[in-house]
Simulated scan of single mutants.
Amino acid sequence: GAYYVSILTEYEKEIVQKEIESIVGLDFAMAELYVSSEDEKANYPRYYRQMLARLAKEQRILSRRTKGSSRWNKQRMVVAKLQEKVANQRKNFLHHKSKSLAVSFDAVIIEDLNMKGMSQALRFGKSVHDNGWGMFTSFLDYKLKEQGKRLIKIDKWFPSTKMCSSCGDQKEMPLSERVYSCSCGSVLDRDYNSALNIKNEGLRLLANE
């Protein structure tokens, strides 16, 4: 017991808070995981998307089989193996993405999203959970902390989607609108505009600390 405690305190002593110079804002995106304020999309790799499509196909076959039959059991094993593969691929991808962000930036700003509530309210269902945003943000959090860097969460009610990142004006943005065009002349991809707003709000919070 004592040995473990001493390691922990040693470890905690090593972490020096880094001065925040480089900052990125991330906007959660259904298909890409996120769009950043650098206008970078996380984009799930093709092999992962192909694997998801294969899994859906095998699950359809399973649903057509008679539950409890030997063919159903066989198919259930096929589905379980694929599910495990998909989960591992996603985990590796999320580790890889969170690591590259933690190396490149001193602070990462995200919205404090309630994924469960979102998937229920918007009926996104599985896709939001499969997206792995929660897993991704916890990986990001500890990878940043290890280097004395920070993950900053802004209020989930902050109007990142409605606001123009150039002039600060606000307007309603239905989900179908993919481009934010403002009367000030600014025309941006919807998620990129949100990511810029998230970054700016993070900067404001940091300035007020």
Rank of each mutant, 00 (worst) to 15 (best):
N200T: 05
R204M: 04
N73H: 11
D169L: 13
K13V: 13
S165F: 01
S165K: 02
N197G: 07
N88V: 07
T9V: 15
K74V: 05
G1C: 07
T137V: 13
D141T: 10
K13A: 15
W157P: 02
L122T: 15
H96L: 12
E32F: 15
V128W: 04
I23K: 07
F124S: 08
S69M: 04
F136Q: 01
V78T: 14
R54C: 07
A195T: 02
D130T: 02
K41S: 12
Y4I: 11
V16K: 09
K97N: 03
D27L: 02
G185P: 10
N197W: 04
G134V: 15
I109P: 05
L151M: 06
M118L: 08
S104D: 09
K74L: 08
V128T: 10
V187I: 14
V108K: 07
G1K: 08
S100D: 13
K162A: 15
K156C: 09
S104N: 13
A42N: 03
N208W: 00
D112R: 01
K74H: 12
S160V: 02
S127W: 00
E111W: 00
E172W: 13
S6I: 14
G117F: 04
L113V: 02
S22H: 09
P45K: 12
Y142W: 02
E40G: 05
M135R: 06
Y48Q: 11
Q83T: 02
L144N: 04
E40N: 05
L82R: 08
A87E: 13
E58G: 01
S70M: 12
P45S: 06
K57T: 12
V103F: 05
D169C: 11
